[in-house]
């Protein structure tokens, strides 16, 4: 179950984004992490990224994953997300788990694909620090000039959301230590 029901102020710069801390309660968190640890992950690599990805989590029936899918995507929460961002109503989510190990990265991109309204990422790596790498780095892009605005450490049990647009440039910094950066990531669709 969700531990937090409130979405505090969405920051507008460089594009609308928000961090919801302590998103899941402890017992759900344990169950979800156990369930994710039991999944198979395929190594994915391109010029843009290097990471391990699960299958689409909306395609599997697992008690803990079902709870997580509700916590992230039930109607009550979708309405809160839409209200917080001032977006049109959100009809559905997709979700997959990703593991970034030593040397993995995701270079700058804006996530723009049709019908993606809000991107989210639930972070599930205990005691992660800046030195370990894996921060979510967000950019302000004006024409072709870009400036790194913030480097958000993916704190355990924090849910980061941002509005997808031509401005929503971001990247995942390279993992610099021998850790496994685990996230559940996806998009709210219109």
């Amino acid at each position: 179950m969700r531990k937090t029901e409130k979405i505090f102020e969405v920051k507008d710069f460089p594009y609308p984004h928000v961090i919801v801390k302590d998103f899941l309660d402890e017992s759900t968190l344990d169950l979800v992490i156990d369930a994710l640890a039991g999944l198979e992950y395929d190594f994915k690599e391109s010029d843009l990224f290097s990471y391990w990805a699960s299958i689409e989590l909306t395609d599997i029936d697992h008690p803990a994953i079902n709870i997580l899918r509700d916590d992230l995507g039930d109607e009550v929460w979708r309405k809160k997300v839409a209200k917080a961002f001032g977006s049109k109503s959100l009809s559905s989510i997709d979700m997959a788990a990703y593991v970034y190990g030593l040397g993995d990265f995701l270079l700058p991109h804006d996530d723009q694909v049709e019908e993606r309204i809000i991107a989210y990422s639930l972070h599930l790596t205990p005691e992660i620090t800046e030195e370990m790498g894996g921060s979510l780095q967000i950019f302000d892009v004006d024409n072709n000039n870009s400036k790194l605005i913030d480097s958000i450490i993916p704190e355990y049990n924090s849910l980061i959301m941002f509005e997808v647009s031509k401005h929503s440039w971001h990247q995942v910094g390279e993992i610099l230590q021998d850790i496994q950066r685990l996230t559940v990531t996806g998009w709210y669709h219109g």
Partner: peptide, 9 residues
Amino acid sequence: KLSSEEKIG
């Protein structure tokens, strides 16, 4: 002599 060249993405 080199200069930075960046086009995000």
